[in-house]
């Protein structure tokens, strides 16, 4: 469904992606792992067209992302949960969730959009009285849930999760992981998650891809991750300071 072929991206002299090749099948939950600054978020933004790759091709269902004529229709297939939730401060929670349903090609009547927003909030474990609050009034965990509700509000085919558990306590992180897994299975969506959190990886992933040195270092089913004979992957999943991945102390 999503295919990246030889994708390169640099920012000035800094080369971030140096030939990424990856395929994510329809209905699969793929988790990208890798150290900080290895280009995981850049890769995600390249797929969405937020960042233009210097070289290589990215296709979604065979259609090249950069050549997609109707951006509105293309983006309507995606939902995304951002690392910091990226909720709009000036809008109440329900309007954040129903943002896409209040404008553009998916526009619905206001009362209907609100009902859908409240239903999605309920789906992520938030009560309807949260709907009229503003993002600044919510805790970090609640903001993540609202971000998740917004990501699924228009029933997208593909959902991206950027560091979904960063900054959350272990219990809330577990709740979010469970929600993501449930939602992805129940919607039959294709999911691409980037994270450092190995608990998330085991909870969410069907397949795991490790990004290191600007390339996909290892890619395979989550069940084979622990037995894979790759020193980079082993160092990353064990969190060891000793190994081929350079650490700065």
């Amino acid at each position: 469904m999503i295919t990246l072929t030889d994708v390169h991206k640099s920012f000035g002299a800094k080369q971030i992606l140096r030939g990424v090749n990856l395929t994510v099948e329809r209905g699969e939950s793929c988790v990208i792992i890798g150290g900080s600054g290895t280009g995981k978020s850049v890769m995600l933004k390249c797929i969405l067209g937020l960042v233009t790759p210097d070289r290589g091709t990215i296709t979604v269902d065979g259609e090249e992302v950069s050549a997609s004529g109707d951006r509105d229709a293309f983006l309507a297939r995606f939902g995304m949960l951002f690392q910091g939730a990226a909720l709009f401060d000036s809008l109440p929670v329900w309007q954040n969730v129903a943002f896409r349903l209040l404008r553009g090609s998916l526009k619905r009547p206001r009362h209907e959009a609100r009902e859908i927003a409240i239903e999605k909030l309920r789906r992520v474990g938030l009560s309807p009285d949260v709907a009229d609050q503003f993002p600044a009034e919510l805790s970090g965990g609640m903001q993540k849930r609202v971000g998740l509700a917004r990501a699924i509000a228009a029933d997208p085919e593909i959902i991206f999760f950027d560091e979904p558990t960063t900054g959350l306590d272990p219990i809330m992180a577990g709740v979010i992981n469970e929600l993501i897994r449930e939602i992805v299975v129940e919607m039959g969506a294709t999911a691409l998650t980037i994270t450092h959190d190995m608990t998330s990886v085991r909870a969410i992933a069907d397949k795991v891809a490790m990004l290191h040195g600007g390339k996909i270092r290892w890619h395979g089913p989550v069940a084979e991750m622990d037995t894979a004979n790759d020193p980079y992957l082993t160092q990353f999943i064990t969190g060891s300071a000793h190994g081929p991945i350079e650490t700065v102390r």
Partner: peptide, 16 residues
């Protein structure tokens, strides 16, 4: 602030 908190990116992903 919207830019540094990725709200501008969020707008784009929401087809706006």
């Amino acid at each position: 602030t919207m830019k540094v908190t990725e709200q501008i990116d969020a707008l784009v992903t929401l087809s706006t």
